[in-house]
């Protein structure tokens, strides 16, 4: 997917000239910032300790947790674009818990928790990431990834429901 393509418009199927396109155009600034944040969270210029492939794989995992097939396809495509190295690609497998890889296990555990049940998160969950070797800046990068993807999926789900109105 091209960097400048609007992921939400593509996923919701917002056709130029349609009624929903006119409504969304009223908030074009928000939609453009949403796309820019998508690119910053999934394929940042400085990825720190979280590679583009790992970000795509974890986002794909989140799309599965959110039961959203179109976002699954989108993040799968991003993973392929990032070269889909085996170690990263495995993290998209919802039945894989990281195995013996302490770092992968911590990333997966945290993504699953915060995507699905953020209310259960405590100080201990951040300590587990630190104990697995994540630096504080990478913990923030991971948190923004999970938080942003959760936002983007909900915007698309809402727009799909709105498109269904007569």
């Amino acid at each position: 997917m091209a960097e400048n393509e609007d992921v939400i418009a593509a996923i919701v199927g917002i056709e130029p000239g349609s009624a929903i396109a006119a409504v969304v155009a009223g908030r074009a600034d928000i939609m453009a910032l949403t796309q820019k944040t998508h690119d910053s969270a999934l394929s940042p210029e400085n990825p720190g300790g979280l590679s583009h492939a790992e970000r795509a794989a974890l986002a794909w995992r989140m799309a599965k947790i959110n039961d959203n097939k179109t976002f699954e396809d989108h993040f799968e495509a991003l993973l392929e674009k990032a070269g889909a190295p085996d170690a990263a690609a495995r993290m998209a497998d919802i039945w894989f818990d990281g195995g013996n890889d302490i770092r992968a296990k911590a990333l997966i555990r945290h993504v699953d928790l915060v995507a699905h049940a953020p209310k259960q998160a405590t100080r201990r969950d951040i300590e587990l990431l630190q104990e697995a070797g994540l630096a504080d800046d990478d913990i923030v990068r991971l948190s923004e990834l999970v938080a942003f993807v959760s936002y983007q999926i909900r915007v698309a789900v809402g727009l799909e429901l709105m498109r269904g109105l007569a």
């Binding site: 929903i20 908030r27 953020p118 998160a121 938080a147 809402g158 709105m162 109105l165």
Partner: peptide, 25 residues
């Protein structure tokens, strides 16, 4: 109206984002 519904979708989703930062970090 649809403009209002879009804003509701956005403010609700935005807090799916903000909550996952504020409450977990």
């Amino acid at each position: 109206n649809k403009e209002e519904i879009l804003d509701l979708i956005l403010s609700t989703s935005l807090f799916g984002w903000a909550n996952r930062l504020m409450h977990t970090l």
